[in-house]
Design a protein around this nucleic acid. Sequence first.
DNA 1: ATGAGTGCAAATGCTTTGCATCCTG
DNA 2: CAGGATGCAAAGCATTTGCACTCAT
Lengths: 147, 147
Amino acid sequence: MLVALRAGGLKLTPQRLAILRELADDPTHPTATELFSRLRAELPSMSFATVYNTLSALTEQGLCVARALEPGAVRFDPNVEPHDHAVCDSCGLVVDIAGRVRGGSPRTAEPVAGFAVRSVERVYRGWCADCSSRLERPTGAKQATGE
Amino acid sequence: MLVALRAGGLKLTPQRLAILRELADDPTHPTATELFSRLRAELPSMSFATVYNTLSALTEQGLCVARALEPGAVRFDPNVEPHDHAVCDSCGLVVDIAGRVRGGSPRTAEPVAGFAVRSVERVYRGWCADCSSRLERPTGAKQATGE
DNA sequence: ATGAGTGCAAATGCTTTGCATCCTG
DNA sequence: CAGGATGCAAAGCATTTGCACTCAT
């Protein structure tokens, strides 16, 4: 991954290394704000601008992807391959379903006339394990719309 | 739908009726800002606050859903049933795949241990018909990550 | 050394909120 | 006519940008 960084002509700064590590270690895909607060202890002088600059540089190099799974802040995913996610209605937790093997149905079929499909991803919504066990009807949950 | 509005204890104001109509007529799920600018001619005095107040009131009544399909503004969908969407990488167009019939595979299977699934939705990403025909590699498109 | 990268602060864009006024039911 | 809804303005977050300074190469 560091190789990829240099290959893109990017310099290896402590800020970038820390962000990269934090991203790689976290399957919940942290937001820019989350990264900033987590790294404040380690890099007290780092600014938001650096976090955003780094994340957009990484995104441009194809080393991570910005994902809009919920209204509000964007989450950054070091796994650039299309894959599925589960999102908790109650606490907002994002769970990566990267490892899941799916049936080999043709995924290049056009969902609508003329639309050239590049990727398909699923979003599972519901309650995470913690929220499921903690409450029958988790705080702040939208009323289930069923399916 | 008006019935549903009243059932929720909401008053029928011209602003709400206009927003509701605009929402219903538009399969691309407009953002709050888009609704505001479209209705400016019809309701010159309407404010952003009213658009947002109305949209959150509708959301609370289960008459629409806020969808985060792309970073930036949230889109509002009058179809509260889980369904699929296609999003253009180039121009950001959202296409509703509401009518698509899918195979009846068990969709309540847990994507990850302990996660209680409420709904599953797919997001197709690629190029819309317009962008596909206009360019070989549409302006502003992220490099295809393939699948 | 030299230009990319950082830090700071101001700016932007989307959304929310407080409050006085207005209008639907 | 009463309470909910609107309009206006200010405030709140997430994110972007400009610019002088610093540091990785």
